[in-house]
């Protein structure tokens, strides 16, 4: 591989030189980019656990540095693109506001809707478990609905449940319901006839079989749906606030800051949303690892 790369480096050097002739600032950005890339290419060739996180971390830091440098060197107006340092300063300065928005949108709206929607989906899946007829009917409909732009029901829910978090939770319930339902129904089918026969020889009742065999076997599928639903929940809660909200909440803050061209505040909210989304996903993935430790996909 190393021999194949070297023409690429000549090209990079040539590009940087050409940029030097056009604009010295452009050359500085390119030097940073290619320099970091060179280090990364070297690091990526190494073995062991360190490059696994070092390379992506370096890449992320390089992007941030490029962003900062570009904004400073070219004097980009803060109403178009604020520098990362300005965004960090804004986050530090308005922690109470961001926390209040986080509580309103993520904890009240998204989390309440997530728990209700996923609970309802699991209950429905178990409810229709005994009826092959209903399953054959509901699954295609559920798959179909999962592809629709459900966020669009946000204005209706805001009309029905008012501006506060209840309407956001309602949007989230509808958004997470079908992906979880489809996965749970598929999961309940995931047992082998041999295993079910064994339960039958034990004279296990339907509920015993469900609880001791089929529900645990369905967990990997269920968690797949639950992980998809974490992102959907946050999206639903944020977008629903664009249609009307009290004067707190991440979607409200984004919408209001647009009017004031306070782009640093929007980026701060986006950073919070990204953190919340990853943390939420990570939490569900962590629970999955603890609960379905026996599944082949969790082996290390």
């Amino acid at each position: 591989m190393s021999r194949a790369i070297s023409p690429g480096w000549w090209l990079a050097a040539a590009l940087a030189l050409a940029a030097l002739l056009v604009d010295i600032r452009l050359a500085a950005l390119m030097a940073l980019w290619f320099g970091a890339w060179f280090v990364n290419a070297r690091l990526a060739r190494g073995r062991g656990p360190a490059p696994r996180w070092l390379v992506p971390a370096l890449f992320g830091i390089t992007l941030l540095a490029l962003w900062e440098l570009a904004v400073r060197l070219f004097g980009v107006s803060p109403v178009i693109l604020p520098a990362p340092s300005a965004i960090a300063a804004r986050i530090a300065a308005s922690l109470p506001v961001l926390w209040a928005d986080f509580v309103q949108t993520a904890l009240k709206g998204a989390l309440a809707g997530y728990v209700l929607g996923c609970g309802a989906a699991v209950a429905t899946a178990i409810g229709i478990d005994r009826s092959a007829f209903l399953q054959r009917g509901l699954l295609p409909v559920g798959n179909f609905v999962a592809a629709l732009p459900i966020v669009g029901i946000a204005p209706i829910m805001v009309m029905w449940f008012g501006f506060d978090w209840q309407s956001k939770a309602a949007v989230v319930v509808v958004m997470v319901f079908f992906p979880v339902l489809v996965n749970m129904v598929a999961g309940l089918k995931a047992t082998e006839p041999m295993q079910r026969d064994l339960m039958a020889t034990y004279h296990a009742s339907y509920w015993q079989t469900l609880w001791k065999l089929r529900f645990p076997a369905a967990l990997p599928f269920l968690f797949n749906g639950l992980k998809i639903a974490t992102t959907l929940a946050l999206i639903g809660a944020i977008v629903a606030e664009f249609f009307g909200s009290p004067i707190v909440g991440m979607g409200f803050r984004i919408n209001a800051s647009i009017g004031q061209l306070a782009l640093d505040m929007i980026w701060a909210e986006i950073a919070v949303a990204a953190l919340a989304g990853s943390a939420f996903y990570g939490l569900v993935a962590f629970i999955e690892r603890r609960v379905t430790f026996w599944h082949p996909s969790q082996r290390r």
Binding site: A44, G60, I235, I254, G277, F280
Partner: peptide, 21 residues
Amino acid sequence: MSVMPWAIASQTIPILAIAPM
């Protein structure tokens, strides 16, 4: 190694929130 972790992580982020901006 540089891009893939970020591409996967970005799936857990409500990207839609940046649409208005």
